[in-house]
Design a protein around this nucleic acid. Structure first.
Lengths: 146, 146
DNA sequence: TGCAATTAGTTTCATATGTAACTATTGTAG
DNA sequence: CTACAATAGTTACATATGAAACTAATTGCA
């Protein structure tokens, strides 16, 4: 029994997008308002906080951002002393990126706030629901990426 | 046992955002590539397809868009003969919007494609999972909106 | 009444974003 | 080798977006 009428409130893509935006707005308050980090910059930082010395291309893959956005974020963060860059000696095109001392410090401050936020919203779900959500998101994502 | 490290791949907001973007990109192919309707315009259309004669402010609420975006979408769609506007006789500020014949036609063409897409991705889930997803999204959204 | 506050929608301006074209470097087929 | 293709990242340009200021109309209330 499929729908033949489209109601935004009952349309999965809309509901997902709505929730995503709510969360995204909340999170950006944590890093933008308090630390002046833009959304794209935060994503770059999140990658470099875990894997140091990687290239811009690697960051792009991990964050699902396009290379232009990554390039801009990186150059801005370098200007703001949040990350450091050198170019690989084997391949002079490839950058090797790492958080600066200041960047690491900012990262260390943001991560607990971010995780606390995640914990908070997950607190509304019980264990089964959390597992179910993770599983469903994985299934959908895998299916759509084909 | 809470996380103390942040891995994007395991971070709910990131996973949600990633999935949302995949879906959003797929959907925009349906209405942008085939009908030249922008994302914001599609949302306006989706509201007017269900409730005709409503104001721009009403559309903004229903779509979770800001009033500037709605204003722009509406004016562009009027230019493209997709919607018609008159202003309320009781309150000359308030617009009364409806799809034009052409707009209704475009809408009628897009809706089945959109619903088919939703059905397709939901086909990867069984009944229980669909219900669970709907329930979880509702819970999270309600909780975050507080 | 009459004037301040509110509301609907628009415009302005500064910033963000994506696509395509570009530079520089490296890989590879002949 | 050499020239052409591929890769990493940047720049340029056109478009999208949001916040704040604005216009016009309506409401509230002294």
């Amino acid at each position: 029994m499929n729908k033949t009428e489209l109601l935004l409130e009952e349309f999965l893509p809309y509901k997902l997008s709505y929730l995503t935006n709510l969360i995204s707005d909340d999170l950006s308050k944590l890093y933008t308002d308090q630390f002046g980090i833009a959304h794209t910059e935060w994503r770059v930082m999140a990658v470099l906080g875990v894997s140091s010395g990687v290239s811009a291309g690697h960051v792009a893959k991990k964050t699902a951002m396009n290379k232009v956005a990554v390039s801009r974020a990186i150059n801005n963060m370098i200007k703001n002393d949040l990350i450091e860059r050198q170019f690989s000696s084997e391949d002079k095109r490839r950058s090797e990126l790492m958080l600066s001392t200041k960047g690491q410090d900012v990262y260390n401050n943001i991560v607990p706030l971010i995780l606390e936020y995640e914990n908070n919203i997950l607190s509304i779900l019980d264990e089964k629901e959390r597992a179910s959500l993770a599983n469903i998101l994985k299934k959908l994502t895998g299916y759509i990426k084909e």
